[in-house]
């Protein structure tokens, strides 16, 4: 190979790749607004992003898969945990993670910061990113839960979940709200007995939780709800 050919390879290689990259950047920039739902990106979301950066959250947590790997990914945290659980973790991590072998720093966030960060996470959760991360894939939640629910339709636990209107705060499969954690996610780390005990008095096991108590149900009924939730848990044959 002559030096002239070598130089030609350099220029063709560099420029072709650069032109392709810049052209796609122009197109991507034009598509970001739609893919990220920029119309919902209001001042509170931006304030939340600033607070998220000020507190250096991103060096422990990943978001969109980028950042520190020391703590859970936050991309779909809003859809997984729900608003109440997020706020409790932000306000009192020392309580929320008292039993955990890994802690989150108490940074004494102001109430405004807590609200802003929650709004930010809510906006991020709806970014259309080809259904990543897989563990929070809405398509997968739907498929697995539909199958479970079909089988569990006659289960007393499922009936109780409907009767007590759990889905006005929680979500399961493609239904429900993001006030409380997703039902499939709960028993990933808890068993049915814990859930039954929690239903009797949420404050005892999760101080500060906004979850109402279900003391009016019998212990047997609470156990049935616990067993239903345990049966649809993530990480158990999903």
């Amino acid at each position: 190979m002559s030096e002239k050919t070598a130089k030609l390879i350099f220029w063709i290689g560099t420029l072709s790749s650069l032109v392709l990259f810049l052209a796609l950047t122009v197109d991507t920039t034009a598509q970001f607004a739609a893919l990220t739902h920029a119309d919902r990106l209001d001042e509170q979301v931006v304030a939340g992003k600033r607070a998220f950066e000020r507190r250096n959250c991103n060096d422990c947590h990943t978001i969109l898969g980028f950042g520190g790997y020391y703590a859970p990914d936050l991309t779909r945290a809003y859809l997984r945990l729900g608003e109440d659980a997020i706020k409790r973790r932000l306000e009192h991590p020392e309580v929320a993670f008292a039993d955990s072998y890994r802690k989150m720093p108490q940074q004494n966030l102001t109430p405004a910061e807590v609200a802003d960060i929650t709004a930010f996470l809510k906006w991020v959760a709806n970014i259309e990113n080809h259904d990543w991360p897989p563990q929070d894939s809405v398509a997968r939640w739907k498929r697995s839960t539909e199958r479970m629910l079909a089988a569990a339709a006659l289960s007393p636990g499922a009936a109780l979940v409907e009767q007590e209107n759990c889905l006005t705060c929680h979500s399961v499969g493609g239904r429900g709200e993001s006030k409380g954690p997703r039902l499939e996610w709960i028993a990933g780390s808890r068993d049915s007995a814990w859930i039954a005990e929690y239903l009797a008095d949420p404050q005892k096991l999760a101080p500060g939780s906004e979850m109402p108590d279900y003391a009016h149900l019998s212990p047997g009924q609470r156990q049935m709800i616990g067993e239903f939730i345990a049966a649809i848990a993530a990480g158990r044959g999903r």
Binding site: I9, F10, I12, S17, T28, Q31, F32, L64, N129, W132
Partner: peptide, 26 residues
Amino acid sequence: YVELGLFLFTGIAGTGHHYYWLGAPK
């Protein structure tokens, strides 16, 4: 020259492997 050409050819557009899941087009 050849090395640099290949580095930049694969490297510049290769940035795309970070753009899979951040909300960019398919």
